[in-house]
Design a protein around this nucleic acid. Structure first.
Length: 243
DNA sequence: AACGTAGACAACCGCCTTGTA
DNA sequence: ATACAAGGCGGTTGTCTACGT
């Protein structure tokens, strides 16, 4: 077998454009196939990741809202590090994003706790985290058993069903100011939509306006028994992009 | 102004699960 | 029933940027 050299590292605009085009054509399932036919020297996995975490229409960018933060805390206390599952409850957020958020904030929290332990006089909550109060129990265990370094400051709190905080949906009303990079997804999507107008019969995949994130697997299965053709459920195009 | 640090984010790796031949 | 390939997921690392000193 001849090993193909796969590219690694940051994606270029051209690669993004290619990927978006071919996902538009073939759907977001057959990643190895897309990787091959598109001519991208990327693995299918890499393509999928790029799509899911960055190119997917409807992704929100920017900081988590306080509601989202609270929900993440709640869901993490419920499910542990089941990031993808948690992400499904947060429209427009990816597991990667939530994972990163958790990691960052748990590190911060761990450091604050360490500092607080070192100087118990200043015990009043100097935490700048507005989310930490009610759910401290979920994260305290993290730092409690940590040795000097803070390697695994975030720990799978595990699915300890302490509380059945079952609220599911949040209404994330506000848009975010886009984290603008010079090159925006709008540009890509504009190009793509123009492209599709020309070459696509417009049936290959179309998004419904109902985001899948709101659903559990069971729910989505019930709604989308033929997930392959129906999975694509996001409003296509820049209208859906908040940024 | 230069440097160090922390935060945010993108991307890769390896393992596990699932679908298919 | 089984082997293999592809997809999915969680963990980890690298890089860039903003901010403080």
């Amino acid at each position: 077998m001849v090993h193909q050299e796969f590219r690694k590292g940051p994606w270029t605009e051209q690669e993004d454009f290619k990927l978006v085009s071919f996902v538009g054509l073939f759907g977001d399932r057959r990643w190895d196939f897309i990787a091959k036919v598109s001519g991208l020297t990327r693995t299918g996995k890499s393509c999928r990741l790029r799509w899911v975490n960055y190119l997917h229409p409807g992704l929100k960018r920017g900081k988590l809202t306080p509601q989202e933060e609270r929900l993440v805390m709640e869901l993490h206390s419920k499910w542990g590090n089941r990031w993808s599952r948690i992400a499904r409850k947060l429209p427009g957020r990816t597991d990667n994003e939530i994972k990163n958020y958790w990691r960052t904030h748990m590190r911060k929290k761990a450091q604050e706790e360490k500092r607080a332990a070192a100087s118990p006089t200043s015990s009043s909550c100097q935490s700048s985290l507005s989310i930490s109060n009610n759910n401290n129990h979920t994260v305290n265990s993290v730092h409690a058993s940590k040795k000097a370094g803070e390697e695994s400051f975030y720990d799978t709190g595990g699915p300890n069903n302490k509380e059945s905080a079952s609220n599911g949906n949040i209404n994330v009303g506000e848009d975010h100011q886009n984290g603008e990079q010079g090159y925006s997804m709008d540009d890509i999507w504009k190009d793509i939509s123009m492209l599709e107008d020309n070459i696509l019969p417009s049936t290959s995949w179309e998004y419904s306006s109902e985001p899948l994130w709101m659903m559990d697997e069971e729910e989505s299965k019930m709604l989308f028994p033929l997930s392959d053709q129906c999975f694509s459920c996001y409003e296509h195009g820049s209208a859906f992009l908040t940024g």
